[in-house]
Design a protein around this nucleic acid. Structure first.
Lengths: 233, 233
DNA sequence: GACATTAGTCGCATTTGGTGACTAATTCGT
DNA sequence: ACGAATTAGTCACCAAATGCGACTAATGTC
């Protein structure tokens, strides 16, 4: 193990810009997802909006930085913050940093529109031009949400402590970006022993009142399945 | 958007150590997986082995760096290199870098044992003490292999162009760390239209000769499934 | 030729999943 | 008051997917 020199001597490390931590803040908005962008003050680049980001600090973990960037942009704490990936290809970024670590943050519906015109929510299908690296982060965030949704109870963090099953299903539909069949959703949900009914009911105006449930996962049986070959080409 | 200063003025960025790129090289070895470690020259830390790593360079993407680190440690190119995640918590690392990006690399079976005693394969269940950050990377790598195995045809990259179905199944078993049922495996494989038979057969000493197949994915039908609630607690 | 060994397939029982249609409880309009 | 509209919740049926034991096939060994 010879050339283990941490820094290629003489080169640029002293001039290198610190890595950035970028956060993709997503929230349910109506029937779809929206992402939080911040206005970029004039520069030569044509992108006028950007994901919130900040340079990494040596006195914080990147998770802490992500939390702070999210709180700063949102004016409050998001419901969940998770890493997506590091982006260190050559694509352009608002900073000069060669490396960025992207985080996903989910925010419960009805988030207060951040003050001032410098920050705004954009529907996920109608996002303005972003720097290429941040565009990739946004795509990565959507992919991450949809793939982690089945592995971890992240949907429950977007709901209050008690909720109706219709509300839960709607969250799933918004995060997945597609409709689900009511009976199938409930059958799978109950089979997984993730929720338990409370004795309260909520009347939401018209229609039959809905029973309230709470998130209360029971012990799991490890279902030893075979392999699946999905979505390969 | 005030405090958009890319670098907190005056602070440490000039003294910051560049992020590292660490590679978890895995290969089938007998009936299990092994990981490549490099001996660490004496230092005050008690870990005598480490994952191959190198400081990020400003003239390479991190993918390129990972490829280079892998080739350097292995003496040849691995079959696949993919990013796992960034590790920027406070855990200790052989370098002084506060941030490391971990990559997974898969190497076909029968990889030449790297020359010299400075590099060696360790069975995955019998790995010596690693720096905490690298230990987390190794766990992350195993998790990544197992979860990506069903999404992308990475197993085929560990096999020659033509192979028997028993060989393919064995790769899956090694990567997943559990046995699979022969008939179920083949049924799912054929249903996914991933392989096609050649007209060659291979006699492996005793037993009936096996037909050789090649990886030849056909167009996919997008199976619109409902949600599943798996492995949540 | 009996047997061990590996490849490959079949069939069945069971589970899982998709779906339309049904019942239940409430509000609103007239 | 009463029926239409609306939302909640469940059922039943069918189709597809899965787990698995048991079978046949082809080869080498003794």
């Amino acid at each position: 193990m010879p050339n283990r020199t941490p820094v290629p001597a003489g080169r640029t490390s002293a001039r290198r810009t610190a890595p950035t931590v970028d956060v993709v803040l997503l929230t349910p908005h109506g029937r779809h997802l929206s992402v939080l962008l911040q206005r970029v003050e004039g520069g030569k680049s044509k992108e006028r909006w950007a994901l919130p980001w900040e340079a990494m600090r040596s006195d914080e973990t990147i998770e802490e930085t992500a939390q702070r960037v999210a709180r700063g942009a949102l004016g409050g704490a998001p419901a969940l913050v998770e890493q997506i990936a590091a982006y260190g290809d050559g694509r352009r970024h608002p900073s000069a940093a060669p490396l960025s670590v992207a985080f996903l943050a989910l925010v419960a519906a009805g988030a207060p529109a951040p003050a001032g015109g410098a920050t705004a929510w954009f529907a996920i299908d109608d996002v303005p031009a972003l720097a290429p690296r941040q565009k990739a982060m946004l795509e990565g965030a959507l992919h991450a949400v949809r793939s982690r949704l089945e592995q971890a109870p992240i949907a429950f963090r977007l709901l209050p402590a008690t909720f109706t099953l219709s509300e839960l299903q709607e969250i799933y539909e918004i995060l997945l970006g597609r409709r689900l069949h009511k009976a199938s959703f409930r059958r799978a949900l109950h089979a997984a022993w993730l929720v338990e009914p409370t004795d309260e009911w909520r009347s939401e105006g018209r229609g039959r009142p809905a029973q309230l449930f709470r998130y209360a996962p029971k012990k799991r049986r490890s279902s030893r399945r075979g392999v699946r070959f999905e979505g390969m080409e």
